[in-house]
Measured scan of single mutants.
Amino acid sequence: TTLHFDLDGKKLQYTGVSEEIARLVEELKRRGVDLKEIVRILEELLK
């Protein structure tokens, strides 16, 4: 799965993300978590 974000005018793309992580990101968005925080979490998970 590939995730795309537009953060402060920067286009971020994460490829090869598992379905689980993609679902987690969608859930965080639904809960109103700040996009910067979501990206920070995502980068930690993908290390």
Rank of each mutant, 00 (worst) to 15 (best):
D6Y: 13
E26Y: 15
V25Q: 01
K11Q: 15
E19F: 14
D8P: 02
E44K: 09
K10F: 09
K10S: 08
I41N: 06
A22I: 09
L46K: 03
I21G: 06
L42A: 03
L24W: 12
G16W: 05
K10C: 06
L35P: 11
R31Y: 05
L35H: 10
L35C: 04
E20F: 06
L3V: 07
K11T: 12
E19N: 08
E20R: 08
T15F: 12
D8C: 04
R23V: 11
L7D: 04
R40Y: 13
V17N: 01
L7N: 03
L3K: 00
R40D: 08
H4G: 05
F5E: 01
D34C: 10
A22G: 09
D6H: 15
G32H: 12
L28P: 00
I21L: 07
V33K: 06
T2K: 05
R31A: 08
I38K: 00
I21V: 13
E20C: 06
K11C: 08
H4T: 15
V17M: 03
D6K: 03
K10W: 07
R31T: 08
R30Y: 12
D34K: 08
K36R: 15
I21M: 10
L46P: 02
K10D: 08
E44Y: 15
Q13L: 14
F5P: 00
D6C: 07
T2Y: 04
A22R: 09
L35R: 04
G16A: 07
E44W: 15
L46S: 03
E37M: 10
D34P: 13
L3W: 01
E44D: 12
K10N: 10
K36G: 08
T15L: 07
L12D: 01
Q13I: 14
T2A: 05
L28A: 05
E44R: 11
I21E: 04
L7H: 04
V17I: 09
S18F: 02
I41T: 12
F5K: 00
Y14Q: 00
L28Y: 15
T15H: 13
L3H: 02
E19R: 06
K36F: 14
L12N: 02
S18L: 03
L42D: 00
T15D: 11
D6M: 07
S18E: 04
E37L: 09
L7A: 03
I41D: 03
K11F: 09
G32S: 09
T15P: 07
G9V: 01
D34H: 09
L42F: 04
